[in-house]
């Protein structure tokens, strides 16, 4: 499959490095800023960027991402407009892999086939659907594969081995291991369940494994890289974004730069990336 996610993880593996996956909600504070943020996060060594499609009823999300989605929806965000932004950053030369992070209904209404074709054309690399378990994913998986897009599947500590096997069969690009039972949101302590889940997943797949839910600082990113291939940071960045833009209509001039710095500080290294164990070694 010709896909930036696969190329990126191969590259990280060759360099023996962990991947950093920042998450932002598209359209918060506005779509123009989203575009600038993607470009900036690419410069901050993001391995993959997760672009959240806001949804009115985000049952898997904690208060931070709920609030951000609500802000974004005030801007009449749509799947089409978000894919346009992806197209624009590709036109500006950004080659960071981008995955959309969505609930199923907005994609279903856009049309599964229409989504895959439009997303591919725009330059997106994959999609993760929080409320699409493997039993429901067959049709969409087929459509995405035909368009060389990755379907990022979620695995949870509650998933049985039987389920993990089903999940890995539908997954491409990487598998997203949810660090603990619960909704998204920053936590002071990482659960030990995550490491256990990653170990169990390795039995069923050779795909890279990213860990997310609750990772909010450089220390936790470094900790995660000891056993997983990438770390996702969502709520911590989103919270910082909302703190800096209490008024949606007044985005400070240095906002993008500040978020870039914030994201950069989530990386456990400053200048030259050191070697991390990561991966299957």
């Amino acid at each position: 499959m010709n896909n930036r996610i696969i190329r990126k993880f191969n590259e990280l593996k060759t360099e023996d490095r962990g991947g950093f996956i920042p998450f932002i909600v598209a359209g918060d504070p506005d779509l123009d800023t989203t575009k600038k943020l993607i470009l900036e996060l690419g410069k901050q060594d993001a391995g993959v960027i997760e672009l959240g499609i806001p949804f009115s009823d985000p049952v898997a999300d904690g208060v931070t991402i709920q609030a951000s989605a609500e802000r974004a929806l005030r801007n009449s965000i749509s799947v089409g407009k978000i894919l346009d932004v992806v197209g624009e950053v590709r036109n500006e030369g950004c080659e960071t892999p981008i995955i959309l992070f969505s609930y199923f209904n907005p994609i279903l209404q856009f049309g599964l086939k229409n989504f895959a074709e439009t997303a591919k054309k725009a330059g997106a690399d994959g999609i993760l659907i929080t409320d699409l378990i493997p039993e429901e994913a067959a049709e969409f998986h087929e459509i995405l594969t035909a368009n060389e897009l990755c379907l990022i599947m979620l695995a949870a500590p509650t998933s049985s081995d039987e389920r993990l096997e089903k999940i890995c069969k539908k997954a491409s690009g990487f598998v997203y291991a949810v660090s603990r039972a619960g909704v998204t949101g920053a936590r002071n302590e990482m659960s030990s369940e995550a490491e256990n889940l990653v170990e169990r997943l390795r039995k069923f797949t050779d795909l890279p494994i990213a860990v997310g839910f609750g990772i909010s600082n450089a220390e936790q990113v470094a900790e995660t890289w000891k056993y997983a291939d990438a770390a996702v940071v969502g709520s911590a960045i989103v919270k910082e974004m909302m703190n800096l833009t209490p008024n949606l209509n007044e985005v400070p001039k240095d906002f993008v730069q500040k978020i870039g710095e914030f994201a950069g500080n989530l990386l456990p290294y400053k200048s030259k990336p050191p070697s991390y164990v990561g991966g299957k070694s």
């Binding site: 429901e136 979620l154 049985s160 389920r163």
Partner: peptide, 22 residues
């Protein structure tokens, strides 16, 4: 067995809930 009546029903949930629903 997947909880469908015709095209309606199913189980659209975060993976964390899938095993508990089973």
């Amino acid at each position: 067995e997947l909880g469908y009546w015709g095209e309606f029903g199913g189980r659209f949930v975060p993976e964390t809930l899938a095993a508990p629903l089973e």
